[in-house]
Design a protein around this nucleic acid. Structure first.
Ligand SMILES: [Mn+2]
Ligand SMILES: [Mn+2]
Ligand SMILES: [Mn+2]
Ligand SMILES: [Mn+2]
Lengths: 220, 220
DNA sequence: TTAACTTGTTAGACTAATCTAACTTTATAA
DNA sequence: TTATAAAGTTAGATTAGTCTAACAAGTTAA
């Protein structure tokens, strides 16, 4: 069974692959906060276990088996986050750190029970999809708020990044998942948007923020 | 902060001290399933941290600081077991293994939240006391069922040992904590007891079992 | 197309936690 | 009271995961 460290490498590889395609030792090194020689030796180890494709000086990738393993760790992480929010009353900005540890618990029944108590959720508290028990992920086709036009009404459904700082910022603006947002206008100069939501709440949000908000068109 | 391994040693030391007083390297070795040289080097390490009193060839003991640390790990273990039973619906025979892992999660708020959701419980699902946030334990003065007399009516309140096998045995006899037991008779020869409980349920249980059941006198 | 920079790899070392083999101290019992 | 057994310690090795320093390969840009 994969160690805690190995599971963290698999997750990092999986996430990087979905953000960039090509993965370098340097990327892993900066995400996992370890030196490149450390990455190098772990990648060789994972490669020997058939989880990673490795050839000297070539970009790193997960094998099919590695992808599945990674997705199952991510499943545990996201189920945990959902459980912490829904059943234990934690805020969405607090759960990542705890889930980072609990995801490594070796007990299938524990995660199965969470899944059951939650009613088999398909997304985590940040809107990211929860892989199924076979490691399969259903990616929903969201668009960035920054790609929407004035007059559009959309539902906030997920985030591209969910750092604690960003989540606390969203809390302060009462921008929770599920909120319906009307785009009033877009400033040409810097792409900042004036939006309204929740009984005429009106805010101006920067392009940096709009880029991180994933939305669905609302049929109305 | 104490590593997972260190925390497990502290717990073992704490439990052994409450069962035997004097602790030997061999005891730790057999409980933790590691060799005596391994125990030796870890005990020296804990001693350097001021958690254990160690002198060559002398029995091992926890310092005040070590006792406190140990009790706080046991607190996390028992809160977790209680949470798993009360909030997640696990049987009392399933929770020890999972708690053995979750007890090492580094997140005070996580355990505080469990404690709060459970309403600050004082005992775990096996009747063992949960140390408070300062590591203080209140030991209740239970007696063994095997020390009771025919005619006594008692409440089953705790267990001296809670191996999975024993818990499954108790399940099969419907002997749960809180059950009121009337001692009908005791067989002189082997100390086995005929007891009745739960609407005239009548059973003969061996002395081996009676020795492991902790009860309180019922005033009636 | 070659020099300079960036990225990746190798070599060698370290720490925590473990082991086995060998030795020393303490306990037991003839 | 001394020989034997049991318990504890030391020495030295191993594995996973990490590091730094040095070197090699690949990329970029003059
Ligand atoms: Mn997360
Ligand atoms: Mn993790
Ligand atoms: Mn337990
Ligand atoms: Mn443990």
């Amino acid at each position: 069974m994969a160690s805690q460290t190995e599971e963290n490498y698999l997750k990092a590889l999986f996430n990087l692959a979905n953000e960039q395609g090509e993965i370098s030792a340097t990327d892993l090194s900066s995400i996992l906060q370890v030196s490149t020689p450390t990455v190098n030796s772990m990648v060789r180890n994972l490669s020997e276990q058939g989880l990673v494709n490795y050839e000297k000086y070539k970009p790193i990738s997960l094998t099919a088996k590695g992808k599945r393993e990674a997705a199952l760790v991510i499943r545990k992480h996201r189920l945990t986050e959902m459980y912490l929010v829904e059943k234990m009353g934690f805020g969405w900005e607090m759960v990542h750190e705890i889930a980072e540890q609990i995801e490594h618990i070796k007990s299938p029944v524990f995660f199965d029970r969470m899944d059951e108590l939650l009613g088999h959720p398909t997304v985590d508290p940040h809107g990211s999809p929860i892989p199924d028990k076979n490691g399969k992920i259903i990616w929903k086709a969201y668009q960035k708020l920054s790609d929407c036009k004035p007059g559009d009404t959309v539902k906030l459904s997920a985030l591209t990044h969910s750092s604690e700082d960003f989540l606390i910022f969203l809390n302060s603006k009462k921008l929770n998942l599920g909120v319906h947002i009307k785009i009033e206008s877009i400033e040409k100069y810097d792409g900042s948007m004036t939006i309204s939501y929740l009984k005429k709440h009106r805010e101006v949000i920067s392009n940096v923020v709009c880029e991180k908000l994933l939305v669905e068109k609302v049929k109305s």
